[in-house]
Nucleic acid binder design. Structure first.
Lengths: 179, 179
DNA sequence: CTAGAATCGGAACGCGTGTTCCGGGTGGGC
DNA sequence: GCCCACCCGGAACACGCGTTCCGATTCTAG
């Protein structure tokens, strides 16, 4: 691979990360190209389609989040780990618009989407339930529904940190084991 | 106003209601015109812009929901009324895509949007809190955030009724007065 | 240094959108 | 029944999108 091609690939990925975080899936290829200081043709040399570029970025973010989840799953308090990761994903959603778009698109088809994230989340959930920190009658469908809801709203409405914490506090209380 | 114009106005509103419920704000004027059996020019004779057509429909739905809220606010159990209305709005969101789009757009600017709905909701909230059915430390911002979140997710991910009930059950438990 | 191939930039294409415009029809007061 | 003001339909326009294409440019092997 030629040196300039490699450099441009990096520039495109960096620019796409920024533009997609701001505008989500609606971001245009021209915007990415302009920010990267590159022609649109250069992008298409590296990524066959707009979708491919987006998936490359989403996959990378997903992988990093999954790693973080795995770390938390090994740590001490299962309940704390579960709620921490929930809040972490919602916080990501506030600034990374693509991530939410991809997540909501993935919700429609459970088979596609982010199986890399589904696994770690399920681990955190069952651990927290065994520890008695989360009520046992919620399953993955309900959890993913609540998680997606929080992410969608946090992103589309621009929840400020204070509001986010107060809203999540209510959901978390609902998720805890009821007396 | 001529008779045919009046008839066409009704057709356009009916068609727009259906198309907007299905496709949300992304619905095209051509789709509305085709379903109404009308030319696009006919729509623009009645509504100066796409936004105006949408707002006419959303305003109508909002008014009807506000009426329903007012009825509930006069009824018996304040807690039951509050949670019933919450669930009712989320159920509407599942089938009326425009409503969710408008709601999420309105959420950004609290002053604009649906003040007609804000009032009745606040009434239901404070009544339920005075009756001890809802914890006193949640205000309108948190409530609207949770409501929007549920509506967004229910619509974008097509929550089936069972999942909707189970997800809302968690949120409602979080909203109830904690022991 | 040079030749050849790989890459770049951005004009161009096809498509779908919201909106405008106007020639051809139609309703209803007289 | 007539006539004109009003209204209708849908072609046309401007724009932005994803994607393709090709002449100009730049890298690198020998």
């Amino acid at each position: 691979m030629r040196a300039d091609a490699q450099r441009n690939r990096a520039r495109v990925l960096e620019a796409a990360e920024e533009v997609l975080a701001r505008d989500g899936l609606a971001a245009s290829m021209r915007a990415v190209a302009e920010l990267a200081g590159v022609g649109v043709g250069t992008i298409y040399r590296q990524f066959p389609t707009k979708e491919a570029l987006y998936q490359a970025i989403v996959a990378d973010r997903t992988r990093r989040l999954a790693e973080r989840a795995a770390e938390l799953a090994e740590g001490g308090d299962p309940g704390r780990a579960f709620f921490t990761f929930f809040a972490m994903i919602v916080e990501h959603a506030t600034t990374k618009k693509v991530f939410v778009d991809a997540l909501s698109a993935a919700g429609v088809d459970p088979k596609a989407g982010s199986p890399d994230l589904r696994g770690p989340i399920e681990t955190l959930l069952v651990r927290a339930q065994h520890a008695g920190a989360v009520r046992p009658d919620v399953g993955m469908p309900e959890l993913l529904a609540l998680l997606s809801a929080a992410c969608l709203a946090a992103q589309q409405q621009g929840w400020d940190p204070g509001l986010r914490d107060r809203a999540l506090a209510v959901v978390f209380d609902g998720l805890r084991t009821q007396p």
